[in-house]
């Protein structure tokens, strides 16, 4: 396996909840991300899935240093992202970039496309000498499949998919090594979504990029990811290769999530087992003790309320009574559940 380019350890991000107008006091903490660890390997796409409020977008913000981390480390090529400042942080910006979700607000409506894609070069003038910039902008437009003639247009003259391409060109301008994609296709129509996903896959090959691909759509994540992490209420609950997660999920949340995805095949109607979760996701201000999923889990026992299950491979599970149910060789992967168990045929 290739070496990790990004190593995240015990990442925590809590947002204080404040009350009061003049004298604001902290009355609680939104535990948006609460101890997340993962490695991103070179040239790999790590998918992060989870429902709204699970902390996946906060994860992106913290990794981009848009929000300060509460604790934890993130090493990019051995260098701690969170300790960088000044020019070192600026240097890091060239290596890690982000593609945002909403193509309608992520582009400044009063800047031309040329200015938008050229801005990275203005901020980092050392990347491209002034004379080269125009040519570079045109080249980038071409790379993402837009006509270089469009430099003088404004964002509103483009459709959603085209705007997302502009956002991708901007992220690509500084030739980063890692791109964090925060729900890059969820605001797009199906037919356009496919175009943008193909583009992302193509760019990864062409520029040997590594992606952290954050999305709530499980099919989209599977399509692009090599490995997948599933998040629930600020924690990573299961992590494995795309095949392990989608074909051999062992965490009950992952299983429920996968079985809830509607399958575009009416002949399977009523034939597949759908795990219907009850209730809503608990508030991240006061998450349940122990396993955070226990309040909605059909397998929950007393142990789940008292002890937090670590994200470990059940083959080496420290908890007594937990057994790896067999299944395929090599299907064993980390799952933060006291009673991990493979369920046959979760995905139809």
């Amino acid at each position: 396996m290739s070496e990790p380019i990004l190593q995240v350890r015990d990442l925590v991000k809590h947002f204080p909840v404040k009350r009061g107008v003049l004298f604001r006091r902290t009355i609680g903490q939104v535990k948006a991300v609460d101890g997340v660890s993962f490695d991103l390997n070179k040239g790999e796409t790590l998918g992060v899935v989870g429902e709204s409020g699970c902390g996946k977008s906060t994860l992106a913000q913290v990794l981009m240093r848009l929000e300060p981390a509460t604790s934890g480390t993130a090493l990019f090529e051995g260098q701690d992202i969170f300790s960088l400042n000044g020019s070192a942080l600026r240097r890091l910006r060239r290596d890690i970039q982000i593609v945002l979700q909403d193509p309608y607000t992520s582009l400044n409506p009063r800047m031309t496309v040329g200015d938008i894609i050229g801005e990275p070069f203005e901020i980092h003038p050392e990347v491209a000498p002034k004379g080269d910039r125009k040519a570079k902008v045109r080249e980038l437009l071409d790379v993402v499949g837009l006509s270089p003639e469009h430099v003088n247009r404004y964002p509103h003259q483009f459709s959603g998919g085209q705007r997302q391409r502009i956002g991708i060109a901007r992220a690509l301008a500084l030739r980063p090594k890692v791109i964090i994609c925060d729900e890059p296709v969820s605001a797009l129509d199906v037919s356009i979504q496919a175009q943008v996903m193909n583009l992302l896959a193509e760019l990864r090959r062409e520029f040997s990029l590594s992606y952290v691909f954050i999305a709530h759509d499980l099919s989209v994540v599977r399509h692009l990811s090599d490995r997948v992490g599933v998040m629930y209420l600020g924690r990573m609950v299961e992590m494995g290769t795309e095949e392990q997660i989608y074909e051999h999920p062992t965490h009950p949340y992952t299983q429920a999530l996968l079985s809830s995805v509607p399958v575009p095949d009416p002949s399977l109607r009523g034939q597949r087992e759908i795990i219907r979760l009850t209730g809503d996701v608990p508030s991240p201000v006061s998450p349940p003790s122990g396993c955070r999923f226990r309040t909605r889990c059909w397998k929950a026992r007393d142990l789940c309320a008292t002890e937090t299950p670590p994200l470990v491979d059940p083959g080496t599970s420290p908890v007594e009574g937990a057994t790896w149910p067999g299944g395929d060789e090599g299907a064993s992967h980390p799952s933060a559940c006291h009673f991990p168990e493979e369920k046959p045929k979760v995905v139809a």
Partner: peptide
């Protein structure tokens, strides 16, 4: 707006 976020991410 996200464009401000994107600008900050660019440094």
């Amino acid at each position: 707006q996200d464009y401000v976020k994107a600008a900050r991410a660019l440094g």
